[in-house]
């Protein structure tokens, strides 16, 4: 597989986890056998008002094993008379505060807690969920933090890159390399809808100064060529929505944000930017605050002896 997906650092852990699971052939998501999903842990039962002080007391013990878990579980109140679960009431509400798993080095902490509180054994998820389905299942036993399912969707979609799609991507990348051009492609039709070289020629006919304008880079020309098409052909499209940008060099921050504003679907590049790249350094395509995210791939010339199946999409953070 000649394309590496550029993912932001925060997803790496999850990504690695999933890779390990596939390689080890361990835990399949839906096999009904949840035992390996959960691990035994220790928790103490306290009144809500004691939760805060207790958490402050134990929070110095940074335990990376627990990062995917919420610290506190609210216990439902069971009426003595009929066993109905009632709405939580302040008076009788109880909380469970997680101290550590049986693998954590928390013996001293447990001893400390047991002087004041009752320590209980609970079951908590061993690792972050890899799907919404799994998250729901985990939550039944212990409140678990929701991870970015964008990552999972991206992952699943990446694995679904069809052979045809890969052929089109490779063909376009080869074209961009040989023509030293930048191209915006409509992947649905396979038609090139914007070309830096065309726009550059058109604009330079009108003003010589455009040639030296530091802001008129090839990626900007390519994006503006798509705008020209939309203006003149009433193309019914909006900016670069649904289109992929192919470039030899990774966009700069300026160019990457221009592409983001234009709502590109994907950016595919060959060489990492020599400066701080919009994708490999800034992860601009997955900034949480922006209203548009897109996927980014780096192309690698495959070694001749390489015979990887398309399952081996190895995503990594660059």
């Amino acid at each position: 597989m000649p394309f590496t997906e550029i993912l932001p650092g925060i997803l790496t852990k999850h990504k690695q986890l999933q890779k390990d699971r596939i390689e080890n052939g361990s835990a399949k998501e839906d096999n009904g056998n949840h035992d390996d999903l959960f691990v035994e842990a220790f928790a103490v039962q306290v009144e809500p008002k004691l939760c805060g002080p207790l958490i402050r007391q134990i929070q110095n013990q940074q335990d990376t094993e627990l990062q995917h878990l919420k610290r506190v579980k609210c216990l439902p109140i069971v009426s003595r008379h009929d066993g109905d679960v009632l709405k939580r009431q302040k008076v009788t509400e109880q909380r469970l505060v997680l101290i550590g798993t049986i693998h954590s080095e928390c013996q001293s902490l447990i001893e400390l807690c047991s002087q004041q509180y009752t320590v209980q054994r609970v079951h908590v998820p061993r690792r972050p969920p890899i799907s919404e389905f799994e998250w729901n299942r985990m939550n039944e036993k212990w409140p678990t933090k929701k991870v970015s399912y964008l990552a999972i969707e991206q992952e699943q979609e990446a694995r679904r890159l069809s052979p045809d799609e890969i052929i089109l991507m490779e063909k376009t990348i080869q074209h961009v390399i040989s023509e030293k051009d930048i191209v915006v492609l409509d992947p649905a039709s396979g038609i090139v809808v914007g070309r830096a070289s065309v726009e550059r020629r058109l604009q330079q006919c009108l003003s010589n100064n455009t040639i030296n304008n530091p802001l008129q880079t090839d990626i900007i020309y390519a994006i503006q060529n798509v705008s020209r098409r939309e203006r003149t052909q009433s193309a019914g499209s909006y900016l670069c929505t649904g289109f992929d940008l192919y470039t030899c060099q990774e966009p700069s921050l300026f160019e990457g944000m221009a592409a983001l504003h234009s709502r590109v679907r994907r950016i595919l590049f060959v060489d990492k930017s020599p400066q701080l790249g919009a994708l490999t350094h800034y992860s601009l395509h997955t900034l949480p605050s922006t209203n548009h995210h897109f996927r980014a791939f780096q192309w690698h010339e495959p070694a001749t002896e390489e015979k990887e199946g398309q399952d081996n999409v190895i995503a990594r953070t660059v």
Binding site: N209, I223, L239, A258, S262
Partner: peptide, 17 residues
């Protein structure tokens, strides 16, 4: 129909040309 036409870039381009 050009997402790069923010005020700042318009002003710089305008001066540049």
């Amino acid at each position: 129909r050009d997402a790069t036409r923010h005020a700042e870039l318009v002003a710089i381009d305008r001066w540049w040309t």
